[in-house]
Nucleic acid binder design. Structure first.
Length: 351
DNA sequence: GGATCCTTCTTCTTCTTC
């Protein structure tokens, strides 16, 4: 096992790619946001210990060097296997920085928030069959690191539950997620103004989602002016589509909202993996879809818990949305490249 | 009515010491 891990580390599979963006969100307690501030070293009299620090730093304590360590590793574990594709450590930028907002649609009609929420169904019957979805693009462009950890998790779960048990477990997670979404849809459609969210706290729900609904009830109190529910958005220039869970105001800010259920606590935005990219992709599509006459600059990821403990709400500022929009454009470029490679491979096979 | 699509979820080193 140890040898295996060494090889992976050296080959770069475990080296994080630059998909993780800086942690900047509204819900992190300040004490957790800046752990360095509370470092025990901050109280150390640095002048008093400066000579000691200098002497330690200037003296080679060990006779080992990177070269001797490499030689030792090779002796113990065999020659180092290097990855064919080295990890990308540089900060990547999209080849074309498509705008997140559509300036032509910036004007917002006064009565935009008065009607019921829209729900545009998916329509693939009119030549849309080749338009890829946000979910598919994200799934097909996962990093090697993400694939590694997901497969490891799956292997461990199957070892614990068996193939059939794992299938049931996965189906159950999906079922709960779907029912949770349906219940929210019902609440928000029946009360889009947001005046009476108490319905969510008193109503009875199926036992498997009761906790999730309790978990999210304090968030729903801050959701108003629901404009869209489970509605299809399509980027007219970039040619991708998706289905937004909800477009509404959260604490007065118009957001694309994504509801999530989770077994593990996700108190930080960084715990939500690709969810912020998904939200930015939806918002960018909505902003460039003629069916929607307004622009959305912010996003919200709500993570609900089965035991009813308060859901975490990660609000993405316009600045952060732009960062994730760039990450999305990179993923989209990667997907398009993959597709063209596959297409050229298929055409050469047909010859 | 059946088939297909979009979603629904899942990941983050590991051990020792205090």
């Amino acid at each position: 096992m140890f040898i295996f891990k060494r090889v992976l580390v050296v080959s770069g599979i475990l080296v994080p790619k630059s998909t993780a963006l800086p942690l900047r969100h509204f819900s992190a307690p300040s004490c957790l946001r800046s752990p360095k501030r509370n470092s025990p070293y901050s109280s150390v009299d640095s002048e008093r210990y400066s000579s000691l620090v200098k002497s330690v730093m200037s003296t080679r304590v060990s006779s080992q060097t990177p070269e001797t360590l490499s030689a030792e590793d090779e002796h113990m574990y065999g020659p180092v296997i290097k990855a064919q594709t080295p990890p990308r450590t540089e900060v990547r930028t999209p080849k074309t920085l498509h705008p997140f907002l559509n300036c032509e649609d910036a004007g917002e009609p006064e009565d935009a928030e008065s009607g019921p929420p829209v729900r545009i169904g998916i329509n693939r019957g009119q030549g849309r069959s080749s338009v890829p979805s946000v979910t598919r693009i994200l799934q097909q462009t996962l990093s090697q690191e993400q694939i590694f950890y997901l497969e490891r998790w799956k292997r461990r779960m199957i070892a614990e539950l068996g193939e059939e048990g794992f299938r049931e477990y996965s189906q159950n997670l999906f079922r709960q997620g779907k029912r949770f979404h349906s219940a929210l849809e019902e609440i928000l459609t029946s009360d889009p103004s947001g005046k009476d969210k108490s319905v969510s706290e008193t109503a009875e729900y199926p036992p498997d989602i009761q906790g999730y609904m309790e978990s999210v009830s304090h968030i729903l109190r801050d959701v108003t002016a629901v404009r869209a529910i489970e509605s299809t958005v399509k980027h007219e220039t970039l040619n991708y589509l998706g289905v937004v869970d909800c477009v509404a105001r959260y604490r007065g800010v118009l957001c694309v909202i994504d509801w999530k259920t989770s077994e593990k606590a996700k108190p930080f935005l960084s715990n939500t993996y690709d969810n912020p990219i998904q939200v930015a992709a939806y918002a960018g599509a909505l902003n460039n879809d003629g069916n929607y006459k307004y622009q959305v600059e912010s996003g919200l990821i709500v993570v609900a818990y089965k035991d009813g403990s308060p859901a975490h709400a990660h609000q993405l500022s316009p600045e952060l949305m732009l960062d994730y929009w760039k990450t999305w454009l990179l993923r989209l470029e990667e997907f398009t490249e993959q597709r063209s490679i596959q297409a050229s491979g298929a055409s050469s096979e047909n010859r």
